[in-house]
Amino acid sequence: MSIEQDRARGAGAGWKRFGSNRAVVAVAATLTVLLTGCSAGNSDTATAPTATSTQVPAAPAAAATPGKSAKPADTAEYRQDDDGFGRAGYFFTSPSGAFSCAIFDASVSAYGTPVGAACQGRAATPAGAEDCAKSEGLQAPVPGLGVGPSGTTFFCNVGSPLFTTTSTVLPYDSSLTVNGYTCHSAQSGVSCQENRNGKGFRVSRESSALTLDGAQRPGASVTVPDVRGERPAAAENLLTNAGLTAKIMGGTGRGPRGGQCVVAEQEPVAGTKVATGALITLTTREIGYESGIC
Rank of each mutant, 00 (worst) to 15 (best):
V190S: 04
T52N: 11
S39P: 07
S100L: 08
K247C: 05
P225D: 07
T50G: 15
P218V: 10
F201E: 00
N195F: 09
A59C: 04
P49W: 08
Q55F: 15
T36W: 12
I280Y: 01
R231P: 02
A129M: 08
E290A: 14
G144W: 01
E136N: 13
A106K: 15
R22I: 01
A11T: 14
T164N: 11
A235M: 04
S43T: 14
G41P: 04
S53R: 14
G253Q: 13
D82G: 10
C156W: 00
E290F: 13
P225A: 02
R217E: 10
S2C: 01
T168M: 05
S53I: 12
S135Y: 11
Q193V: 05
L238H: 03
D81N: 15
S191P: 01
V33P: 00
R228E: 07
K71R: 14
R122P: 02
D74K: 13
F92N: 02
G292P: 04
V33R: 05
F18L: 10
D173W: 11
T211L: 02
G116H: 00
G243I: 00
G67V: 04
S20F: 06
G97W: 05
E267G: 06
P114S: 04
Y181L: 03
A278M: 07
T50N: 14
C38S: 14
A70C: 14
G116T: 07
F201G: 03
T281N: 11
A234Q: 13
D173G: 10
Y289D: 07
F155C: 01
T276D: 03
P72L: 15
I293Q: 11
H184Q: 13
T284A: 05
N157W: 02
S185F: 03
Y181C: 00
V147Y: 03
I280G: 02
T245C: 06
T284S: 08
A48L: 15
G10Q: 06
Q260S: 14
F85A: 13
A140Q: 04
A186S: 12
V27H: 11
G255I: 09
I103A: 02
D6I: 09
E286Y: 04
G116K: 00
F91N: 01
I293F: 14
G159A: 03
P66E: 03
L145H: 00
I280F: 00
T223A: 06
N179G: 05
F18A: 07
F155Y: 10
A26D: 12
R196Q: 14
V56P: 05
C119S: 02
L239N: 01
V178E: 00
Q139K: 13
A73I: 03
R205Q: 13
A133R: 13
A28N: 13
G10A: 10
D83R: 08
D83N: 15
T36S: 15
E77L: 15
N197C: 08
S191V: 09
D83V: 03
A70W: 04
P141V: 01
A118E: 04
A51K: 05
Q193D: 09
S53Q: 13
